[in-house]
Nucleic acid binder design. Structure first.
Lengths: 367, 367
DNA sequence: CTGTTAGCGCGTTCAC
DNA sequence: GTGAACGCGCTAACAG
């Protein structure tokens, strides 16, 4: 059915090896022969069989990119930048890879399933993006899988998730981490410096590393202002202190933000500011507050995280913490392609930046 | 380096053929033998080589998904639904495929390049999403490529782009089209029925099919109200009539909407409503109007298209035209997997729905 | 410079 | 039920 190398060879009156050499260009071939071969390729509309090539040469054109949610611009931006980085570079050995975007939906099982599928395909590289699920068994499973992949020559890059510790010496897994903790801390400090003292916190899923880091930053800022958990029980975040009473866990979607805001108002009507898990959640929070007839930031301040493109368009424009997602994605792409050397220690931390906009203001003074 | 079938066979004390049979389960194997093999697989952490399997069995686990912009939720939503549809179904012959999301950036060259790459990989299926570039040469090139892919057994599905006409009899390319024209028409009719007569139109890139269809719907509504182009020259949309003076072409991004809105106000300060190319553009339009001190919808109404998740959160909530993107993506996924039969004529048109929200209202009466 | 010869790892006949 | 042998389409050593 399909045209093969042998067909082209026959048409051009040469051996299949010669055709292969012309195609790959890594070997001297006479000009006239080359032209004849190229003409035959054109005439027959020949397209190399990537699988056969991969099998024979033990290489792959595939780079797997695991994301928690393709529909979320957070991942879209990373994937987009990453993909244009690895897809460029023409057809050379270090370019023209195909990005296989795998949507895990945040499910640990899906994550492992995809890693298996990618291992099957002998992928040239694998990039894991976004917060990790912090379950001990799962982390161990992922670590083992990645170690094996790395050992078999697959480039492994973590982007937006904390570095993993491997039992053996570093198997060459590099990490592009986000400074979630620092960003969250600066954000809460901003609110504190405006005069807020009752600051609600709507976080993401409990088990995600991103959630934990942002929450830690938030609490560190509070602690620095002497607003730590008031009771011992509060230290674990389950009961007791202000910090836990003012914290609501939810998902990374808008609906979670909406519900969480209502819950916060119920728990503590005097809350004067709310920091959200991310910008999407912040929009949900804003919607809930508006529905309650509250003015932002007049009655209550709201802040997001990530600085997704739509944040500047919200009204009021959202105060948030900017993560340079495209830069991070591009860097991850370069790392997985081996076009950039691994940072010292294998971990590059991407700085975050506080973006103060219109959704935060000093708290209303009691009348 | 990597463990192969033969290794497993040796460990289990059987032939590699038997291991293959156990793995694929399509053949009778004695229970005891099967267990022994499975144990060997576990112990050796064996993972099949997808490329070798693909080469031998002439099948592929890859489904290509071409999108214009991964970072745009429009495509993210389609890709997400599509991917969960093809990735599910376990490891059977009709399941467990990997979605290769290819970001063309709207570039015709990139589109063709990716089609070549996918053809190389002998992809099981290819889905082209989003508006097509309406250039004659490019359309011909894509048509030829798709015909060849389809002929060689690759399932080809068009999602959100108009059906293609093939020279030969239908090569089994199915299309999931959006009723952009009808949606745009109903949207403009909504504005007309509110009393608007000077309706600005911010469209997408001129050469995109989506742009043309939405513009056609818009103009059809105007024409039905006797508001067609006033001069003959206006008929081609380049000069003369109101329709063209009130139309500004741009991109599908927020900045385009911002600029276009300012341009519209300059051309026609009396404009009372603006329909945008999509929701993202509409947000840009809103931002520009706000910066000009105009109230929405008090001074001017704004409408979007697509009904992306954030539209309901904009303030005011955006009147828009809903396209059930996830359903469309899921359907495209089922079609490309052969899990759903092709609609009659090979074309399924997805209905769109007008969502009237707070950003549109009757025009201000002159005082 | 070019042709010949081996595999790459697996699925699949065909015999046993 | 199982093993041996062949071939998928291509690249990479060898020769020449």
């Amino acid at each position: 059915m399909a045209v093969t190398l042998a067909d082209v060879a026959a048409r051009a009156g040469v051996s299949s090896a010669t055709v292969s050499r012309v195609l790959n260009g890594n070997y001297p071939v006479a000009g006239s022969t080359r032209e004849r071969v190229q003409r035959a390729v054109e005439e027959l509309d020949y397209v190399v069989n990537g699988q056969a090539r991969a099998l024979a040469a033990a290489t792959s054109d595939l780079v797997g990119v695991l994301v928690n949610d393709v529909a979320d611009p957070f991942f879209g931006l990373i994937a987009s930048a990453l993909q244009s980085e690895i897809g460029a570079g023409g057809s050379g050995p270090a370019g023209g890879k195909l990005a296989v975007v795998c949507n895990t939906g945040g499910s640990p099982e899906a994550e492992l399933t995809y890693l298996t599928l990618l291992e099957r395909q002998r992928a040239a590289g694998v990039v894991l993006t976004g917060g990790a699920v912090e379950d001990e068994a799962h982390t161990a499973a992922v670590t083992a899988r990645l170690a094996r992949l790395a050992a078999s020559g697959t480039a492994v890059v973590l982007c937006g998730r904390p570095p993993l510790t491997f039992p053996d010496e570093s198997p060459g897994v590099t990490t592009v981490a986000f400074d979630n903790r620092g960003g969250a801390r600066r954000l809460t400090e901003h609110l504190l410096s405006l005069g807020h003292r009752k600051i609600g916190c709507v976080t993401g899923p409990l088990e995600r590393s991103t959630t934990r880091h942002r929450l830690e930053g938030h609490r560190a800022a509070l602690a620095a202002y002497g607003l730590g958990p008031r009771t011992a029980a509060g230290a674990d975040g389950t009961a007791g202190g202000d910090a836990s009473r003012l914290t609501v866990h939810g998902g990374y979607d808008r609906a979670s933000g909406y519900d969480a805001a209502l819950e916060l108002l119920r728990r503590e009507p005097d809350v004067t500011a709310i920091v959200a898990a991310n910008d999407t959640v912040a929009l949900g929070v804003c919607a809930a507050l508006r529905d309650r007839g509250l003015n932002i930031p007049g009655d209550i301040s709201v802040a997001g995280f990530d600085d997704l493109p739509f944040s500047v368009d919200a009204s009021p424009a959202l105060t948030t913490v900017r993560i340079p997602l495209q830069e991070a994605g591009a860097r991850a792409g370069r790392l997985v392609m081996g076009r950039q050397s691994s940072p010292p220690g294998g971990v590059a931390t991407i700085a975050t930046e506080l973006m103060v906009r219109a959704s935060t203001a000093p708290p209303k003074t009691r009348s």
